[in-house]
Design a binder for these strands. Structure first.
Lengths: 199, 199
DNA sequence: TGAATTTTTCCGAAATCTCGGACAAACTTG
DNA sequence: CAAGTTTGTCCGAGATTTCGGAAAAATTCA
């Protein structure tokens, strides 16, 4: 489970209190005083979520939201809002913000919401990681005739074995449970050259 | 993206208004009047989320929460609460509820929250599906002799083709670029029965 | 039901694969 | 360097696979 919360808040006092609340909830606050300072951390592989004040001197919450969505639409942004512009915050939610919190806000509530956002982020990243690994495996598995696909797979297995024995054909054969000569036969057919695997 | 929202709410008026709000937001409400009626829908493979009133004549929100968590800890439960017992609701959140909503609640806000819960549920189910397929693949991919591994892979390819032609061997053979008879031979050796793939 | 199509099984010959044996070349190692 | 080991290549017999033809069995459809 992820724990990082990138805090974007210009008021040092509020920032400190948020930080404390999150630490108390066993999360990992990363305090910044504004968008400019936070920007570089906001990337599609950021392993955490964002908590930003909605109203700040130089930038506002929508700037953060826009920027974040451009970098990664699945990076949750939670907005902190004064009681006055709750409606703005709700618009932001419809615009893609993960959630909003009214400003004098219960530390427990803050932690609950951030934890939920972190759960979401965790799931998204896990999903992506699996998808990547997945495609990698399956790129051989599609298209072509049965024999072609089978041979492609066989080639991969053999190459893998050769890598693990750093090019020793005899060892690889043993590992694969076939006679040495048979492996040579297969390698000839599949055009696998053992030299390529020696280090 | 999932859309089903299982509504557990005894008050017919409120229930109807919730239903309408969700429909308006392009979600799919499934109304029930209480826990008893809802129980059978609550399973670990439920493709949706739960929205329950926290205070009902026969059961309360905690019953729903407990039951749901037992069936699937990652099935979001959102609780509807009167203004009076917000503190109860917050306790429920710490206890695993996904979120709570104060009862005279903005339809837009309701939709936003439910949509987020549905996103969460979608991610969880996707994750699970991938995990299953994943270690199924990696299960065969390791250990065993070259021939065993190859045959396992061949079996998978053939089965996959049969699924996509819903058990028609001739079609599958064509798809795989081999003669019908050859496919029969392979199927015999690999003990693949085409009947199992007909629907 | 009965004809037409499709699925499935059985056969056998040609093609391919398996695998042990043999051996020269290359490579370790004392 | 010389003896011992490993590698890469070639051979050939026996086993297995491929694949067309044929026909029985099951299914579809009019």
């Amino acid at each position: 489970m992820l724990k990082k919360v990138l805090i974007i808040e210009d008021d040092p006092v509020l920032r400190a209190s948020i930080e404390q609340a999150l630490e108390l909830a066993d999360l990992e606050p990363i305090p910044t005083n504004g968008f400019t300072q936070a920007r570089r951390s906001i990337r599609s592989n950021f392993r955490g979520v964002i908590l930003s004040d909605i109203k700040m001197p130089d930038h506002n919450g929508f700037d953060v939201l826009n920027f974040t969505q451009a970098r990664d639409p699945n990076l949750p942004v939670v907005l902190l809002t004064g009681h006055s512009d709750v409606s703005t915050a709700m618009r932001a939610v419809r615009f893609g913000a993960y959630e909003y919190l009214e400003k004098p806000c219960d530390p427990q509530r803050l932690a609950d919401v951030m934890r939920r956002a972190l759960e979401h982020r965790t799931l998204v990243l896990e999903n992506r990681a699996m998808l990547e690994e997945f495609d990698e495996d399956h790129f051989v598995a599609e298209g072509g005739s049965l024999t072609e696909r089978l041979e492609a797979h066989e080639k991969k297995i053999i190459e893998q074995a050769l890598v693990s024995t750093n090019g020793k054909v005899a060892k690889a054969a043993e590992q694969l449970g076939i006679p040495r000569n048979t492996l040579y036969d297969r390698m000839t057919k599949l055009r696998v050259v053992p030299k390529a695997f020696k280090r």
